[in-house]
Design a binder for these strands. Structure first.
Length: 974
RNA sequence: GCCCUCGUAGCCCAAUGGCAGAGGCAGAGGACUUAAAAUCCUCCAAGUGUGGGUUCGACCCCCACCGAGGGCACCA
């Protein structure tokens, strides 16, 4: 076939270009990744890659993300799961519209063309997507359900319109959500964002703030900690109190929010946000009104970027009005300033300069008094210029004097509530989600504005409200929606009263589309509903979500919100959409993000043409932990090519027939194979794909050696090894793997071959190196069977003169015969006796020791079973302990402990003998022959009858045998 | 300023508190070759950022510092 490219690829290997062409049609035919239909009995897995925006062809970032998602999806298919791994397009958005304006192409056509390009590239990249379920969000069949979702929220009061100061991007000529403003700049085009007072549509995500925060405990350990932290920061819950202050010459009091109600006596002035209605009202008609307007103009012209400079000097204006401190009746001067935000809390604060840095800065700038009310022992803030926020004793605070911070907060909250002056309150940084946009290429908001009925939802049977044709519309950004220009489209009759009315001309933020798209895949062709509840019950929640950390807040928070709303509507039975999240890193070049302007852009198509699909996929997966950035300068695709060739050559060397009985094969190669399959599988499940690849490479090396100079190519074990390589390799290098599978005499597709069954008896090594440590220092290494008994191992160890010598030098008396040392050793009081490692693990006298490959359940059994009432649901009883893994079984650990640590954890050994008059139940329990029950009885006895006078008393009280007692007599004292 | 994560051979990275090295890249030598490429074999290298602590034993746990990266940043 491709003779031209042969020169580039064939180095005693296979023709990559040819093989890539060869298998695609075969796979199209077999469709190995079509997910099961309702009657499928296999357990399900829903693996989802974040769907892309269709601008241009795929790039290196896509290549990494899809390679990673593919490993997971293909692995679960091999493991016999019914895997749904769908793909679609997030197809609405500004780039299409901007391209339309620039080149005059209909956004729909531009989008469709890009989707076609990307889809073809995904096929060539051998992504294991189930194409039967695909959709894109600009299809009316999708966005009608987007409109349906909007109406559901609207009818529940969760979608509403309000006028407020919003973020406005002057370049894109549209509003932005808070989440789309990064450091004062438009997320998309880096233009400084300005504030504009507009009436916009919002989703009431703040109603769900507590649940969005609290439900994160379900995600702990399953989502990157980083993302959870970012979401917590973003929601920004704080607790404090609302306190109402009387304002002179005003009938209504003003409520302020504070996190430090304990410092109420330290308030020395009062500040209102300069851009709030309250400030304008207070200034109205006063002598400072002129100055106030001037000040307001000045701060409005300051951009958000200026505002973000935290070291900016404080500015403000005295309004010549006063507030009355409710706790002591003091008159506080009222100031207007831009350091108080109008839309957080109530837009007004009490200022406590001694204990709040911002207030202190303002007080120093305006020469206002500072009163310390919490004595932290630090320097006086009015002198040091540093506010003290720490704990201390309350002073100058009337009834609060002498109390500690927490105590004072509780006390004052109670008092305020009793006197009707305030009460404990919570606040959030999170704002409602602004979802309307003044652009064309998005989902029309399905609302009709009627002069007499107000906002009326479009009846569900009239959905979708389709976008008017772009032709003939002026799409250029001009601050109002282009849809307003479609006169025929805008003017409709009110669905309620039938009188002339107008459609809402805004479109929805595209994050609305992606906030529920994962619910659509299970029933993507359903024309009667957004999603089939039954199908969603089958597939959701998503078992593994893969995508960039750039969506840590926006998309993931919105998706969680919408899921909770739908769950409240009883349309879903779960309240978190994504059980497990993997954030892949970025592909960078020499430490910097790739970009055309930087001149460090690596083009995916070039890389694929040079090295082939498999080598690029392998390089992406092998380069390091998936969440780390990949620096392409550190990546060696040609190294991947070499490895793939090595693996491929093996498949041609095997001379046995398919179906041969592996159990008769060479035992040492079989052990290597089963160890590799076991470890690689474990690594994939732990998302440590780079480690999984390393295990496959090891097996390739072992197989090569075995074929060349070991058991030879005819041995069944050689076939077993190479077949295992092909199957494992199919997760990352599908073309190579398929080619190998064929050369091994099998029918396609290797993707469906099934993950090799691990024979656990083959996981036990022939022999292990036991490391003998004395006082923690390695003294000797001896090769022994992993099945050796403790006793025999001790004898082996003591046969070495170096060991005897080391024991003598640390105070162990030898009496000529090694065996006698064993008997005397436990009596030595010097804590480290003889610590013998087995196969990298440890055996310590007094700790349960189990044979190699025991499971957690065996450990619990050895320790006498499980206490009543223990919650075992979080404990993986089937987990195999590593050879000689040192474990400590603690049946007294309470429920709710983190996974796998409730009963099994590393030994923390106490040094020296235990004082039985002070020992806890746990410490006594650890002694041989004393279980938890007995330990408890001993402690109770001690409480009733006073301390033991001799160690021997313990034996009498507990009634244990003297031989048992002798075992730990040396480890206790009084 | 606050919070989080990470510092292991020249490089990318492994290592349940128990032999510091699994794998790869780069490098050196050898076999094959007229030669080169490719292939195969062998070898090379750090004592885990620094200083303390806990432990019989620390890359791993704790504290401080240094360095890198990320998040938040007038949210009262």
């Amino acid at each position: 076939m491709s003779t031209d490219s042969t020169r580039d690829f064939v180095h005693e290997g296979y023709d990559v270009a040819y093989v890539q062409e060869k298998w695609l049609p075969v796979w199209d035919e077999l469709a190995p990744f079509r997910s099961g239909r309702p009657e499928d009995l296999r357990p399900k897995k829903y693996v989802l890659d974040m769907f892309p925006y269709p601008s241009g062809d795929l790039h290196m970032g896509h290549a990494e993300a899809y390679a990673l998602g593919d490993v997971i999806a293909r692995y679960w298919v091999q493991k016999g799961f019914n895997v749904m791994h769908p793909m679609g397009w997030d197809a609405f958005g500004l780039p299409a519209e901007n391209a339309a304006i620039k080149a005059g192409i209909d956004p729909a056509i531009w989008t469709d063309e890009n989707i076609a390009v990307q889809k073809a590239s995904m096929r060539r990249y051998a992504c294991s997507f189930d194409w039967d379920r695909t959709f894109n969000t600009c299809d009316p069949e999708f966005y009608r359900w987007n409109q349906w979702l909007f109406i559901q929220l609207f009818e529940r009061g969760l979608a509403y319109r309000k006028a407020s100061n919003v973020n406005w991007c002057p370049k894109d000529q549209t509003v932005l959500a808070n989440e789309q403003v990064i450091a004062g700049l438009c997320e998309r085009c880096d233009t400084p964002v300005v504030k504009k007072k507009l009436t916009q549509w919002y989703f009431k995500i703040t109603d769900y703030a507590d649940r969005l925060l609290d439900d994160m405990s379900q995600l702990e350990g399953q989502w990157p900690e980083k993302v959870l932290t970012m979401q917590r920061n973003w929601i920004g819950r704080s607790s404090g109190a609302n306190v109402s202050f009387t304002i002179e010459r005003r009938t209504e009091p003003v409520t302020i929010y504070t996190t430090r109600p304990d410092t109420l006596y330290g308030a020395t002035f009062f500040v209102v946000a300069a851009d709030s209605d309250l400030a304008a009202e207070l200034a109205l008609g006063s002598s400072v009104e002129g100055k106030f307007k001037e000040y307001l103009e000045k701060i409005k012209s300051a951009s958000d970027i200026d505002r973000l400079a935290t070291d900016r000097p404080k500015s403000g204006l005295f309004l010549e009005r006063y507030a009355i401190n409710p706790v002591n009746g003091e008159k506080l001067s009222i100031w207007a300033s831009d350091y108080v935000l109008a839309d957080y809390g109530t837009g007004a604060i009490m200022a406590v300069p001694a204990h709040d840095q911002r207030d202190l800065d303002f007080a120093r700038a305006m020469d206002l008094p500072v009163r310390v009310v919490v004595d932290t022992g630090e320097e006086d803030p009015s002198v040091s210029g540093v506010a003290t926020a720490g704990n201390g004793e309350l002073i100058n605070s009337g009834p609060l004097n002498g109390k500690a911070k927490d105590e004072a907060i509780a006390f004052i909250n109670e008092q305020l509530e009793r006197d009707g002056l305030g009460k404990a309150a919570r606040n959030y940084r999170l704002r409602d989600w602004l979802i309307s946009r003044q652009r064309y290429w998005g989902t029309p908001i399905p609302i009709i504005h009627c002069p007499s009925c107000g906002e009326v939802a479009v009846p569900l049977d009239q959905l979708p409200v389709k976008l008017p044709d772009a032709a003939g519309l002026d799409l250029k950004p001009k601050g109002t929606s282009p849809l307003g220009g479609a006169t025929d489209w805008v003017n409709v009759d009110c669905p309620k009263c039938g009188n002339p009315a107008k459609r809402d001309t805004d479109t929805m933020d595209t994050f609305v589309d992606s906030s529920w798209y994962f619910l659509r895949f299970p029933s993507s062709t359903d024309q009667t509903q957004a999603f089939s509840k039954e199908a969603v019950e089958t597939w959701l929640p998503v078992d593994q979500y893969v995508g960039g950390v750039t969506h840590a807040i926006l998309h993931l928070l919105y998706s969680r919100f919408v899921t909770k709303v739908l769950s409240d509507m009883d349309l879903l039975s779960f309240n978190e959409p994504f059980s497990r999240l993997l954030n892949q890193g970025m592909v960078v070049m020499e430490g910097a993000a790739m970009s055309k302007s930087r001149g460090n852009l690596v083009r995916l198509t070039d890389e694929l043409a040079t090295h082939g699909v498999d080598a690029i996929r392998l390089s992406m997966v092998f380069s390091g932990p998936p969440e780390d950035d990949i620096d392409w300068k550190d990546v060696s695709p040609s190294g991947s090519v070499k490895f793939l060739n090595r693996a491929w050559r093996l498949s041609g060397d095997i001379t046995s027939a398919p179906g041969v009985d592996f159990t008769t094969g060479d035992i040492s190669l079989r052990k290597a194979t089963h160890r590799a399959v076991h470890d690689a599988g474990f690594a994939v499940e732990s998302l440590r794909f780079n480690v999984a690849i390393a295990r496959i490479m090891e097996l390739v090396n072992a197989a090569r050696k075995a074929v060349d100079s070991g058991c030879g190519p005819t041995d069944p074990a050689a076939r077993e090894a190479v077949e295992a390589v092909a199957i494992m390799l199919s997760l990352v290098a599908p073309f190579t793997a398929e080619e190998m599978w064929e050369r091994l005499g099998h029918q396609p597709s290797v993707a469906l071959a099934g993950w090799p069954e691990v024979d656990e008896t083959l996981l036990i090594a022939d022999s292990v190196i036991a490391v003998v440590q004395i006082n923690g220092k390695i003294k000797e290494r001896i090769e022994v069977s992993p099945l050796i008994s403790d006793h025999d191992l001790e004898i082996e160890a003591l046969a070495h003169p170096t060991i005897i010598e080391a024991l003598v030098s640390c105070g162990v008396v030898t009496r000529g015969h090694p065996q006698q040392v064993i008997e005397t050793a436990p009596v030595i009081v010097a804590p480290p006796l003889l610590v013998v490692d087995v196969a990298g693990g440890v055996k310590v006298p007094g700790v349960y020791s189990l044979p190699a490959d025991s499971r957690v359940t065996d450990a619990i059994k050895a320790a006498g079973g499980i206490e009543k009432g223990m919650d075992m649901s979080e404990i993986n009883l089937a987990r195999i302990l590593r050879d000689g893994e040192q474990i400590y079984v603690d049946p007294l650990v309470a429920t709710n402990a983190p996974k796998n640590t409730a009963v099994v954890r590393s030994v923390k050994k106490k040094s020296g003998p235990i004082n039985i008059n002070r020992a806890s139940v746990k410490e006594l329990d650890a002694l041989p022959g004393i279980g938890p029950v007995l330990a408890e009885r001993i402690v109770k006895f001690r409480k009733v009858n006073g301390p033991f006078s001799l160690p021997e008393d313990l034996q009498k009280v507990s009634g244990i045998g003297s031989s048992k007692f002798a075992q730990f007599k040396s480890k206790i004292k009084v």
